[in-house]
Amino acid sequence: MKNKHSKWLAMPFTVWATIFIIIPLFMILYYGFVNGEGTFTWENILAIGEPEHLKALGISIVLSLIATVICLVLAYPLAMILSRLGINQNSFIVLIFILPMWMNFLLRTLAWQTLLEKTGVINSILSFLHLPALNIINTPYAIVLGMVYNFLPFMVLPIYNAIIKLDKDVINAARDLGANGAQTFTKVIFPLTLPGVISGITMVFIPALTTFVISNLLGGGKILLIGNVIEQEFTQASNWNLGSGLSTVMMLFIVISMILSSIFDKDGEGGMF
């Protein structure tokens, strides 16, 4: 498919990517490896080893992992149900499912803040029903809830894609050879959709790991994730060098995750795009 025209068609994006992705990336790398005076240093990178940064990174990893697992448990059955529906029902259910995604990410998270507040909607209903109040706002639970709510679609779509690509006769073949429903799932369906699962895990885990908006709004600033630390270095401490150094470390995490997922998903089958 390589011809002269395709090169020109890629031009607008190349310009965009250069200005808004590649140049900023190099700027972050530059700031990350120099101190305030502009001389080379490892300090900003090694700052990840400081106890408060390690703690933030640890909490981020734990909460993101929990959110990823919950997403997987919710998404796989949902993707299977979606894949079994006929086309007409399918489009309606898909619509219900993606409708919240059209809403702005900040608004969705703000809505959860309002719902979960001590005097919020959920607690008003609970107190009306004389039930004990739900106090999860400003706790890790609320952050995980926000992560799951916001990132669930990124888990469902790759798994859904992997499932609908399965040849029905491969499933029939497993049944034909004597496998019952559960055996067919564990020995054939799940292994064959694993690339989609890996892709989904990557697409939930990485944004969850680096989020700061969800923890700001639902964690009440009490729980610092690594994203919050980096944000504060840029906005409050105005220490761009330290912020960039920590960002570079996070980028390393992302690159590692992507390499891992590409090893499992050699053919790019499970990808969303």
Partner: peptide
């Protein structure tokens, strides 16, 4: 009884 499918339906994994 066992079936041989048109597009083989082998387990590729």
């Amino acid at each position: 009884l066992n079936t041989v499918f048109q597009k083989y339906a082998l387990f590729t994994h």
